[in-house]
């Protein structure tokens, strides 16, 4: 990789340099995940409704919060970079690839899982597929952006998907557990990254016209 490519790479991965997106997204994911697990474990309908509401409200709200925090913390310290919106064809490719991996993994587990699939029924096949798809997506992102810490999320997800496949979980509980663990991992990696970022970058003086 030459200096031009290194500069381009740094600019592309700048979004992740402060850990804010992981921290905020992680909190939202962990909350939704814990509510899903709790609703299944306790059988309290109210918790299931709260999980659904959290899913509908928290994810859009967390995007706004990320923008706000970046404006206050990151853009004043190390500047602002606007990225081009991914084209539809690029988005479609990513979605199709993730779905293919998830379905392939689900089919593999359903056909050759043996004892692995006996508990939890069809639901398990889906959350094992979804977990594998998400783990692969994180690993691919880690390689493309050269961010080793995203591997931590990929490894934790893969390990949890495999381990929870042996337990007696249905789809909601299994997915809830995966989201809770992924969210918690993201909160830790994002929080540590943000702390390091703030300590390394004192606030820059305001720009004057």
């Amino acid at each position: 990789m030459n200096e031009i490519e290194r500069t381009q790479q740094r600019t592309r991965s700048y979004w992740f340099s402060d850990g804010i997106a992981e921290l905020v997204g992680g909190i939202a994911m962990a909350l939704v995940g814990f509510l899903m697990v709790a609703s299944e474990r306790t059988g309290v309908d109210m918790l299931a409704t709260m999980a659904l509401l959290a899913m509908i409200l928290l994810f859009p709200a967390s995007a706004q919060l990320v923008r706000l925090m970046k404006d206050r913390i990151t853009h004043t310290r190390t500047g602002y970079v606007k990225y081009p919106r991914p084209t539809m064809s690029k988005r479609r490719k990513i979605i199709i690839l993730s779905l293919l991996i998830s379905v392939a993994s689900a089919v593999f587990v359903a056909l050759w899982g043996g004892e692995y699939t006996l508990d939890g029924g069809v639901g398990k096949v889906f959350f094992v597929g979804a977990g594998t798809g998400m783990a692969v997506a994180f690993a691919v992102r880690a390689v493309r952006l050269r961010l080793p810490r995203l591997f931590a999320s990929a490894v934790v997800l893969a390990a949890m998907t495999t381990a929870s496949g042996f337990a007696d979980f249905g789809f909601v509980e299994g997915m809830g557990l995966l989201l809770a663990v992924l969210g918690s991992t993201s909160v830790i990696t994002g929080g540590v990254t943000l702390a390091i970022y703030i300590s390394r970058h004192p606030k820059a003086p305001l720009e004057t016209l």
Binding site: E3, I4, T7, Q8, Q9, R10, T11, R12, Y14, H75, T76, R77, T78, G79, Y80, V81, K82, Y83, P84, A204, E207
Partner: peptide, 22 residues
């Protein structure tokens, strides 16, 4: 200027502070 162009080739836009840092 090559450095500036390298940054801008990877983004839609970048501000003065970011370009100063890079």
């Amino acid at each position: 200027r090559l450095k500036i162009m390298s940054v801008l080739s990877a983004a839609e836009s970048a501000d003065f502070i970011y370009l100063m840092g890079e």
